[in-house]
Amino acid sequence: MIDNLSMLLKVYLTAIPLIVLIGVYCIVVTHNLIRVLIGVEILTKAVTLLLIIAGYVTNNTAFAQSLIITLIVVEAVVVATAAGVILNVFKNNNSLHVRNIKHLRG
């Protein structure tokens, strides 16, 4: 199935690790909760691309599309919830630094 890679597919397959790298970099480097969330979202985009390719190589694009639309809806809800929590962290501490969620230990 995966032998006859087209040019387009090769572009996609190089893009995915790059996007993953960007997402991981974004999460590791920052101390800002919103940026951590953005990093997670970038990673999700990489996975979405992977699903698109999976649909493409198996000649099943319609199925992949329906999965991706569902995925986008679910992700939107998760991001809304996470943003709500971050908003309340900001209200409590007046800062978005990750140290605000590093009190509990042991």
Binding site: L33, V40, V85, N88, I101, L104
Partner: peptide, 17 residues
């Protein structure tokens, strides 16, 4: 919405993501 609850929730959200 107190500090600990938000911290627990945020950790769960990130690990779960």
């Amino acid at each position: 919405k107190d500090g600990d609850a938000l911290e627990g929730s945020m950790k769960y959200i990130l690990m779960s993501a």
